[in-house]
Design a binder for these strands. Structure first.
Length: 559
RNA sequence: GCCUUCGUAGUUCAAUGGAUAGAACAGGGCUCUUCUAAGGCCUCAAUGUAGGUUCGAUUCCUACCGAAGGCACCA
């Protein structure tokens, strides 16, 4: 029987037992005791209901244990401390789960979303603007969430929504035209955007010209502009693809604001008469105050669709492109208030789509001094960070056993940045500290990769020495062994809550426990315990590999 | 001003209302003739303030203080 089934059975039996004692507890949730010495599962349920039962907590706990009787797969049930009930799994259950950890390709997965189709939109960089570390963050989180959902049985569709029209494009294009750039590189475009944004704010004439250009881009009215626009857009998109390749993301769908704008506009304009939208000061607005939210402009007084109208079009387009059970949009927290308004408008315009759509907000990448702003140009681009990290990694890789040091350096760079993002709760901001980001030690992605490479080296040697791994039931169950068995639960929770950091933190625990053991014990020692120890290494290795895959972090065999 | 989110070692982060608040980095000390020292071991160090709910609060509620984000033609 699998761990999660044993867990379910314990929860169910406790609930039944409490009902027998006249207590309706609702759902019982077991916890993992902080101390492994306290067993594999624990509950404080007796403490909670002692008063209601008219007993002291320990008495109630004893009564519950007496009624519970035996549970398959559980070796020991005991009352501890003020009235906790601790469950210790039978060695056979632990060994059985470890066997899966060693061999099963599907180790760590669950079936909670089998048969569901989920679209996840993430990364969302804008052509004509820099791909900065905020996009790296969105990509790392979004990709990991998609992998967690896939590990829960869902069919996941990755979507990328990109702003290829709008004022930012006009700003970049205005400068490119002024500079007579005909074959723009990605550097030309970045610097043109920064300059254009600056001019828009500081120079009234430029502002007027950029606004006019913006309208021309929407209307596609000028051949010369169309041509440069097409080139710049293509260069930006190709640059993004290079980064996705390095990061390990492949999108199934690309949506563009140039397409969703007209779709959204038609929807918005069709709902002015029925009062969902209204005209005000020449613009078309959504009066959020009616719903306890704030007002937003959907079509500007100049007649251009704003982000909100394009986003309505995006929602419509997604739903029309493919049918899904759930649609998740991953964006930064600065958009969370905006998204509430957006969602309300969607409820009124397309309730079926709105019902399926939810928003996952991640924090913002910020500097100690304050917010990054691509308009001011004080951003760290994704490319520069990856390059810098790879350089640092390469100096370390000089003595590496890996075949290709450049490939390894890049894998390490990806691990370092992704882990830094994924180790913390998704909603929180990340204070970007260059030295910390470039550090490859301690609580880090490379630490996990190194540990995996270490397990791989041991397994290679064991294979050469013809050691046949065998798990031994009679060997005392170590903390490391019990930790390994928790992996599927961690994955399930992370998928349910859209929180990859549970996996990241768990992997560090496993790696740390393994490294500590490795430091104390000679694994390949030709003793009678050797096959057992090698089998544990296999389980650790496989858990790290599957776990890192869920985080989107590469697992080189050698470092 | 209104709305949202957040305040945990010097720093960056953990902790489904539970048992002694965990890591990492930085600081101090130890550890490579033994399976990878990107490692291991020891050590110093924290819940913003004041109330409340609870058997039990970092976690829930209220107030205050502090930080970040948002609030009409950017995305």
């Amino acid at each position: 029987m699998r761990h999660m089934e044993i867990r379910g059975q314990i929860e169910q039996k406790i609930r039944q037992t409490l009902v027998g004692l006249g207590i309706d507890s609702g759902t019982i949730s077991l916890e993992h005791p902080a101390e492994l010495a306290h067993g594999d599962y624990a509950t404080g349920i007796a403490l909670k209901f002692a008063k209601q039962a008219g007993k002291n907590p320990r008495e109630l706990a004893e009564a519950i244990v007496a009624h519970l009787g035996g549970i398959d797969g559980v070796a020991k049930i005991e009352v501890a401390g003020p009235g906790f009930i601790n469950f210790t799994l039978a060695p056979e259950s632990i060994i059985a789960t470890l066997e899966r950890a060693r061999h099963d390709e599907q180790w760590g997965t669950n079936e909670s979303l089998t048969g569901k189709t989920i679209m996840v939109e993430f990364t969302d960089p804008n052509p004509f603007k820099q791909f900065h570390i905020g996009h790296l963050m969105s990509n790392a989180i979004g990709e990991s969430i998609t992998r967690l959902l896939e590990a829960s049985g869902a069919k996941v569709l990755r979507a990328n929504y990109q702003g290829d029209v709008g004022p930012h494009v006009a700003k970049a294009l205005y400068i490119l035209l002024e500079r007579n750039v005909t074959e723009p590189t990605i550097q030309d475009i970045s610097s043109a955007y920064v300059e254009g944004a600056h001019r828009y704010e500081s120079d009234g004439q430029s502002k007027v010209a950029i606004d006019a250009l913006n309208k021309q881009i929407y209307e596609r009215s000028d051949e010369h502009i169309n041509e440069l626009y097409a080139k710049g857009r293509a260069v930006s998109l190709a640059h993004f693809e290079d980064l996705y390749h390095i990061l390990g993301t492949k999108f199934d769908f690309y949506f563009f604001e140039s397409d969703t704008g007209p779709i959204g506009r038609a929807i918005v304009e069709a709902h002015i008469e029925d009062g969902i939208f209204e005209k005000s000061e020449g613009a078309v607005i959504f009066l959020g105050e009616k719903y306890g939210l704030h007002t937003r402009v959907f079509i500007t007084s100049a007649g251009n669709p704003t982000y909100e109208t394009k986003d309505i079009g995006n929602a419509r387009e997604k739903a029309d492109t493919v049918s899904f059970d759930r649609s998740i949009v991953v964006t930064a927290s600065e958009q969370s208030e905006y998204f509430k308004v957006m969602h309300k408008a969607m409820e009124l315009l397309m309730p079926d789509v709105a019902e399926k759509t939810s928003h996952v907000t991640h924090g913002m990448m910020r500097f100690t001094e304050g917010k990054m702003s691509s308009r001011k140009g004080n951003v760290v681009t994704g490319e520069s960070l990856l390059t810098e990290l790879a350089e640092v990694a390469k100096t370390r890789a000089a003595e590496s056993r890996a075949k290709d040091h450049d490939v390894l350096a890049q894998q390490i760079a990806v691990a370092a940045i992704k882990y830094q993002v994924l180790k913390q709760t998704t909603g929180k901001d990340i204070v970007f500290d260059r030295d910390r980001a470039l550090s490859l030690e301690g609580d880090s992605g490379p630490y996990l990769q190194y540990t995996y490479a270490r397990t791989h080296a041991i397994l290679d040697r064991a294979h050469v020495a013809n050691v046949k791994p065998v798990l031994n039931t009679s060997t005392p169950q170590s903390d490391l062994m019990r930790l390994i068995t928790r992996f599927p639960e961690v994955v399930l929770r992370a998928a349910n809550e859209y929180e990859p950091h549970y996996v990241a933190i768990y992997l560090i625990e496993i790696a740390s426990a393994f490294n500590s053991w490795y430091g104390q014990v000679q694994i390949l020692d030709q003793s009678k315990d050797e096959p057992h120890k090698v089998a544990i290494v296999e389980a650790v290795s496989h858990t790290l590999k599957n776990g890192l895959r869920l985080l989107g972090i590469p697992t080189p065999d050698r470092m």
